[in-house]
């Protein structure tokens, strides 16, 4: 086995374990406490660690380890990191139902996704994991978007009041940035991105269901051209 494949298997394995742990802690909390209060305190650090590590995926596609275009990966990872950034800084989001919804959707998706990638690299992926990968998104994807946009919406008053991550003139680099308006603008991206990605995934699902041999391109399968 090539070093690069070995590395990718290892990466996917670690991520799978990480998100499984997050899913376990989150489920346990919601079952025992029956409330989203305290979720971030309990598992925020793990979310920061493993979602932060996903930045590596941008590098993977930039150097050609995987064949997904790096811009696609960048947009996916960037929007999630932005949500984690908000959860870290804005107390109002931390105990909110939207955050739990977001983390629940993320963690289930990631456990399935990373198992699928890792096992596919070893050519040992059972059919039902592939089926889960191309079926669960039907519910998890809209839930995730609801959780993310909800978290952003919850954070708006705080961001406006404190000027979090904003820069105003005059300053020596002559640049201004208003995070509050950028967040409001992000809703447009979600509104455009959701139907686009949803129909794309439905197409992938069709391909998966219909042809076992012609499996859809996956984000972590090695790139045959560059390797």
């Amino acid at each position: 086995m090539k070093i690069s494949t070995l590395y990718l298997v290892f990466y996917n394995f670690v991520q799978c374990i990480g998100w499984s742990y997050i899913l376990y802690l989150l489920s346990l909390h919601l079952i025992t406490e029956k409330s989203p209060v305290g979720v971030w305190d309990k598992l925020g650090q793990y979310v920061i660690l493993f979602q932060g590590a996903a930045v590596l995926e941008i590098i993977h596609s930039m150097v050609g380890l995987v064949k997904t275009p790096w811009v696609t990966t960048f947009i996916q990872v960037f929007s999630r990191v932005a949500c984690v950034f908000l959860a870290y800084h804005v107390p109002a989001t931390q105990n909110h139902f939207f955050l739990s919804l977001m983390l629940m959707a993320w963690s289930i998706t990631e456990v399935i996704r990373y198992s699928f990638y890792g096992l596919s690299l070893l050519n040992a992926c059972p059919y039902f994991i592939g089926w889960l990968r191309y079926t669960t998104f039907i519910i998890l994807y809209p839930s995730g978007v609801a959780g993310e946009t909800g978290t952003i919406y919850t954070s708006l008053p705080f961001v406006k009041e404190t000027g979090l991550f904003s820069l105003s003139l005059p300053n020596s680099i002559n640049f201004a940035f208003n995070f509050y308006y950028a967040l409001i603008f992000s809703f447009v991206f979600y509104a455009v991105g959701l139907p686009y990605l949803y129909t794309y995934m439905l197409g992938q699902r069709k391909r998966f269901i219909s042809g076992g041999s012609k499996k859809p391109s996956t984000a972590s399968t090695p790139n045959k051209k560059t390797n």
């Binding site: 003139l169 005059p170 300053n171 020596s172 002559n174 640049f175 201004a176």
Partner: peptide, 11 residues
């Protein structure tokens, strides 16, 4: 937009 801003700071 930024070079001609009224609050522009020259180096």
């Amino acid at each position: 937009y930024f070079v001609n801003h009224p609050l522009y700071t020259p180096p």
